[in-house]
Each structure stands twice: as structure tokens, then as C-alpha cells.
Computed example of a mutant assay.
Amino acid sequence: MKKLFYLIFLFTMPLLGQNDALFEAGNAAYNNGNYEAAIENYEEILNSGETSDELYYNLGNAHYKLNNIAPSIYYYEKALQLNPNDQDIKNNIEFARNMAIDDIEEVQKSGFTAIWKDTVSVLDYNEWGWLAISLAVMFSIFFLIYYFSRKTFQKRLFFTLSMIAVGGMLFAVVFAFQQKSYVTSEQFAVIFTEEAEVRSEPTQRSEEIFTLHEGTKIEIIETYQDWVKFELANGLQGWTDKSYLKFL
């Protein structure tokens, strides 16, 4: 087992060093205004299998500088998937969306389901997980203080605090699994062609109901052969050719 670990270590360390060098080279090219070279360096890192929100963010920035609408939005979306609460990513993706032709106004959903989803989405599943661990540690501390306290007031106080901590921990665990479920069950894509015909049925003979343009984000509802059924943020649905899309 030790030999296997050393072999993995020996093979991965040069790759990590090479990717760090590529990342720095990409940053240098970006700062010098050579955005094509920056993209080449960043994409070489992606091709090696390494990903990060910072890498996707830098790719989005480089494509934005070149007015590449769909790629910039795509990579900002990828960065948001890994770091959904980063304000810089949120700000830049709004700038990129302003370049897109389609102005899709999001319809705010109401009801208990929408409130539940908004609450769960306050943190990503990793953050809910860390919160659960923190609350578990707090529970242990409060319970130990309660157990060894001799004064009645202290015992009541720390028993109450320990119960609050364990209750919060259980909620955080539930929210973490629910948020993970949302991330894995929902599938989105970005239109990568200049124009994408949207039809009422998954066939070229069906009626064309409207047209979408590059950079528009859609939620995939169903896949049938080379077609996907999707929904826009405003609730409109339709079918389009899968080749028009790049999946997130």
C-alpha cells in the first residue's frame, strides 16, 4: 500500500507543478492583454483533469475580454457551481449576460417548495456540511460542560445549548443532502450556437415556436435521441437540437 501511495505521489507531483506553471503563465498572458494565450494555458490545465472555481473564473474573464459570449457565460456558470456565493463571479456573470441577445427575465416561484429551496440554497452542500461538523463540536463541548456542572442553572443552560446545537446539526445535515440532491438532479446547459431553433416537438417537421441565441442558459427537462426538452427561467418550454448546447 505504501508503494502505491509513493507511486501516485511521484506521478501527480510533477503534474501539479506543471499546472501551477501553466496557471501563472495564463495569468501573465491575461495581464499582458494576450487573452488567446491565456485561454490556451487555462484549457491545457482543464485537459489534464484539474478544475477549480478560480480556473473557470479566469477562463470566463479571458473569453469576456474577447467578446466570446457563450464561453464566458459557460465558464462563469462552471465557477458558480463550485463557489456559488462568490460575489466577484456573480458580478462578472451579470456583465457577460448583458452581452447576450436574449433577455430572459426570471420568474420568481412562490409557495412552500420555493421557500424551502431558497432556504436550502443559502449555502452550498459543503458549507452545510462544515456547519454540521461545527455544531457537532459545539454539542460535545456544551454536553460535557452540562455533565460536569454542579450548579442547577449551569446544567439547565448548557443542556439547552447542547440540544439547540444537536438540532441545528441535524438541520444542517438534512440541508446538505437536499442541496446535494438539487445539484445532482438539475441539469443545465448554455446555447453555444449563434441561433438555436426551438420547436414544439422533437422533430424538424414540428412547428418552430421561437429562437434562442448564444449565451442563453436553459434547464434540461428531458432528453430524446438528439433532442432536449428544456425550460427557460421565465417558464417557457420547448425542444431544441442537442448539438446547439454545451452542458454544465
Rank of each mutant, 00 (worst) to 15 (best):
S200E: 13
A100P: 00
S200Q: 13
S140K: 10
N91Y: 06
K180R: 12
Y147Q: 14
N83T: 07
W116M: 14
Y147C: 06
S134G: 15
V120C: 11
A132L: 06
I164F: 15
A136F: 14
I164R: 02
V120F: 09
A114L: 06
F159H: 12
T184V: 12
T119K: 07
Q187V: 10
K78V: 03
K151Y: 07
L161D: 08
F177C: 09
D118L: 08
F142G: 02
F153A: 15
R150D: 09
L123G: 01
V174T: 09
A96F: 00
S121A: 12
A136E: 07
W128S: 02
K155Q: 15
A189L: 03
F158C: 05
D88S: 13
S185T: 12
K90T: 03
D86S: 11
L82T: 04
A100K: 05
G167I: 09
N92L: 01
A196R: 00
Q187T: 09
A196N: 00
D124F: 06
A165H: 00
G168F: 01
L80H: 04
N98Y: 06
L123F: 15
V174A: 15
M169Q: 13
D86C: 04
A172R: 07
R199V: 00
A172P: 10
L170D: 02
T113A: 13
S181K: 11
F158H: 08
I145V: 15
F159M: 14
D124L: 09
N91T: 09
T193F: 00
L131S: 12
A96E: 01
G168I: 03
A100Y: 03
F177R: 06
D88M: 06
S181V: 03
I115A: 13
T184F: 09
Q81R: 13
T113Q: 10
L157M: 13
A189T: 01
F139W: 15
M138I: 10
F192P: 04
